[in-house]
């Protein structure tokens, strides 16, 4: 009876599946992040062999070993790559959830190359950060 009305959902739920795929990717990135942050916290609490400065905020940067600062930089860069990935995913999910109108004009539903490139670059940066964090742990 509603045959004259265009279907409001794609039968294969393609946009929904793609949006969920982006969300899973963010979760994977956060897992890698948490492990790098954990490594930094361990150096802060003196586990990594540096001076036992504790979590006190009194010490100037000079009070920390190069090891702690290096791991801090790794943790910050890891956080940055995840923020970039989240921004890519947010832009993409907003487009995918913007209704069926963009689906009709198929040219607009395909992912912009910029988003794919930025996401790839973020992962490569995260990998470089991982290598640095591993090297600092030596």
């Amino acid at each position: 009876m509603a045959s004259s009305v265009a279907p409001v959902r794609d039968p294969g739920l393609q946009p929904e599946r793609t949006a969920l795929s982006w969300r899973r990717t963010i979760m994977s990135a956060v897992v890698a992040d948490l492990l790098i942050w954990r490594g930094w916290l361990q150096t802060l609490t003196g586990f990594g062999g540096g001076p036992d400065t504790g979590l006190g905020l009194g010490g100037a940067l000079g009070g920390y070993s190069a090891h702690v600062v290096g791991m801090g930089v790794c943790a910050a860069v890891a956080a940055l790559t995840t923020i970039v990935l989240v921004l890519c995913a947010a832009a993409r999910i907003r487009l995918l959830h913007s209704g069926v109108a963009p689906l009709e004009s198929e040219g607009h539903i395909a992912v912009p190359a910029l988003i794919v490139r930025t996401a790839s670059a973020a992962i490569v940066t995260l990998a470089a950060t991982t290598v640095c964090a591993l090297a600092l742990g030596m």
Partner: peptide, 8 residues
């Protein structure tokens, strides 16, 4: 990402 998380 799983390889990176696994490495760390």
């Amino acid at each position: 990402l799983a390889l990176l998380a696994g490495a760390i």
